[in-house]
């Protein structure tokens, strides 16, 4: 009897959980937010504050999105853009982490390099484009160069500062237990630096994303989301521009919410960094 009660209770709580997951408060408020935004847009359109050619209706933009999806322009563009993003990001990750490690190993170099990297980190990515065009040309490599230059320094600096700020007591304890060289590195320094590294990676990811769209617009290679944007401008096709912007926004949001937030949450949970959460 009791077990039966328990199991039915479990079932109820399980189905409740699923329902809660689908219609939780965050999702609900997101839906409301988007609806309000679309309503204002529609209102502005009806009132003709801007000429109808300059600002199409939400419905027209929706139609354009469907058209562009059906003729594979958006799908192909998104695929190419994401491919470039991953390539550039992974390359920056490799170069950034390795340089960061060298900076730790050779302290004087680290000191000098870190002040350069701080300067280059805030350097506007779009300012690399003329240089990339003349140095490499109107091709994928040129775009890749711009992406790497705009995000590698974030990875480099977060590796460097993450490792430098490992609490000395962890290192002491580890050396006391017999850790030396590589094992100290693998078992203590790298995991201890991970939260900082993840933050740097997240920043690098968004820098890469900004740089990539800019580079695709200016370094014409006939494919990619940035290129679709620039074509829209040339043909004064506002629907296409807004449609592409929505896709760019969505991709950015998905990666931030799904990938980085999840990783960060997991780390915060493990390390107990959420304990100082502000009481609501």
């Amino acid at each position: 009897m009791e077990t039966h009660l328990n199991s039915s209770k479990k079932k109820v709580s399980l189905s409740k959980k699923i329902v809660n997951k689908i219609i939780n408060r965050d999702t609900l408020s997101l839906v409301v937010f988007i609806s309000v935004f679309l309503a204002i847009w529609q209102l502005v359109y009806i009132l003709e504050i801007f000429p109808k050619l300059s600002l199409p209706s939400p419905l027209a933009v929706g139609q354009t999105i469907i058209e562009l999806l059906l003729d594979f322009t958006l799908i192909k563009g998104t695929a190419i853009t994401l491919w470039r993003l991953f390539l550039g990001f992974l390359l920056s990750l490799a170069i950034g982490v390795i340089t960061g490690l060298i900076m730790i190993k050779f302290q004087q170099f680290g000191k000098t390099m870190s002040s350069f990297a701080v300067g280059l980190q805030s350097f506007p990515s779009i300012a690399w484009i003329p240089f990339a065009i003349l140095l490499i040309g109107f091709n994928d490599l040129g775009i890749l160069f711009v992406v790497v230059m705009s995000c590698v320094f974030s990875v480099m600096l977060s590796t460097y500062s993450g490792l430098r700020n490992v609490p000395p007591i962890y290192i002491r304890a580890a050396r006391n237990m017999g850790a030396k060289g590589f094992s100290l590195f693998r078992y203590v320094l790298i995991p201890a630096a991970t939260p900082t590294l993840i933050m740097g990676m997240r920043q690098a990811w968004s820098f890469a994303w900004h740089a990539l769209i800019g580079a695709e617009m200016l370094i014409t290679t006939l494919v990619g989301l940035g290129y679709i944007l620039s074509v829209g401008r040339e043909f004064s096709n506002m629907s296409q521009i807004i449609a592409t912007m929505i896709v760019i926004f969505t991709i950015g949001l998905i990666f931030d919410r799904v990938v980085f937030i999840k990783i960060e949450e997991k780390i915060r949970d493990r390390w107990g960094l959420d304990q100082q959460k502000i009481e609501q």
Partner: peptide
Amino acid sequence: PERIMMFQESALFPWLTAFQNVEIALKMA
């Protein structure tokens, strides 16, 4: 490791569980 120090503040690693914190000493050894 034949002279092991226990510190005033916990020198345990926050990214590991209690089990893993003990285990890591043996991993290093």
